[in-house]
Computed example of a mutant assay.
Amino acid sequence: MGTATVRHICRSAAAAAGLAMAISAGHAEDRPGTWRLEAWQPPFDYSHPSTAIDYQPVANAAHHWKICASYPHLKDSYWVSVNYGMVEQAKAAGVGLTVVEAGGYPNLDKQIEQIKACSTNADALIVGTVSYNGLTPTIQEIARRIPVIAAVNDIDSTGITAKAAVSWEEMGRSIGSYLANLHPPGSKPVKIAWFPGPKGAGWVPFIEAGFQQGLKNSSAKIAAVKWGDTGMEIQLLLVEDVLATQPDIDYIVGSAPTADAAVSLLRAQGKEQRIKILADYFTHGTFREIFRDKVLAAPTDSPPLQGRIAIDQAIRAIEGTLRYRHIGPQIKVVNKTNVLSLDLDNTLAPAWFKPTFEVK
């Protein structure tokens, strides 16, 4: 695929996501007083079942605390939605927020340097990590001074004060089970091209394990696996390679950018009626593509709500009022039957929101 073609498809996918954001432009203006969440006890351990709780966020912080938040990237609307939740919650609670982003999952050294600098004058650090354990020595050092909150991505719990996240294994299992239900044992076998994400990223081994588990006891089999960063151009190249080398696949399953890339490529190659697409997380692009029957389903873990939770946990950790050390939204699989009934303000950033790096 030529560079100009890749750029054209990337622009088309961005425009499609923009249309989905326009659909969500009118979401809720009044915040509910409580959030319905899942809590894990002991914390940071998904081997035990979670408990549903009604969670009351801090209305106003006791002081104008300074919080630093570090993201893997802001290359897709998933992390933009996390950013939206953090920014809105910081404003609502009356705290300052400084955001840094590493530019992608390969950039561990960059994230280390960013969080060292950003946390110097902060009262708490929130980390969406690029690596499961690559940040551990740095976090241990920072945790001697200030609370460290893990957000979204799985991470080694050493030095972590609290965590705002869901089980990525359950995210993978939910979409694997959805596909398995479409192809029960004894039905006609189908072939899957599976795009887990970048090796080494904190969430990828868990979503991989969950997806594999969800597919058990079905006639669906993985015929190809492609690892790589979740940037759109990389995913376009990976999907194109699979379509060239495995033309008989029946499903493409992977990240939200994988689904975006697959929609564009299948349409360009005239294969959109034969090959089906599922995503293992939910963004503006998958919202639009599910609505238009281009993607079958994707689980949402409510990225804006995770951002809000992380800010609230940081405030509580600073002020000594932290009750739940590990909480997250409830996972919901979205398909054509329920896509228009979503709580959009807790699921996607609105159309007007742009990535924001500082709240004074």
Rank of each mutant, 00 (worst) to 15 (best):
R316A: 03
I67N: 03
R325M: 12
G320S: 08
M86A: 13
K110V: 15
K332G: 09
T356E: 06
L97K: 12
E272M: 07
A122I: 02
G103M: 04
N346I: 12
L215C: 12
A15T: 14
A256E: 09
M1S: 14
R7W: 01
N346R: 11
C118F: 11
V253P: 07
L278V: 14
A223N: 10
H284L: 14
P42F: 05
K221V: 10
K188W: 02
I311T: 03
A298K: 02
A150D: 06
Y281M: 04
M21P: 00
P196N: 03
V152P: 00
A92I: 08
A28I: 04
V58I: 15
L236K: 03
I175G: 03
S167M: 04
G159D: 04
S302C: 12
E88I: 00
D154N: 13
E113P: 03
I9G: 03
I252Y: 05
W203G: 03
S157I: 01
Q313M: 07
S50H: 08
A262E: 00
F287Q: 01
S119L: 09
T286E: 04
P43H: 09
R323Y: 06
S341G: 15
I327E: 00
P205E: 04
K91H: 14
V166H: 01
P247Y: 04
P198M: 10
Y46S: 09
D54S: 14
Y55I: 02
K199T: 06
N335Y: 05
Y132L: 08
I175K: 00
I207A: 13
P32K: 05
V127A: 10
Y251T: 04
G159N: 00
Q235S: 14
G134A: 06
E358R: 12
C118M: 10
W40H: 06
L74V: 12
T300C: 06
H27A: 01
V82S: 01
H63F: 10
Q273L: 11
V239F: 02
I126D: 02
A4N: 13
Q140C: 15
E170A: 15
S50P: 05
S187I: 13
R144A: 11
L278C: 13
P184Q: 03
A151N: 08
T321C: 13
E38A: 15
M232W: 05
Q330I: 15
K216Q: 09
W79E: 08
N181F: 10
D343G: 14
V166Q: 05
D45F: 01
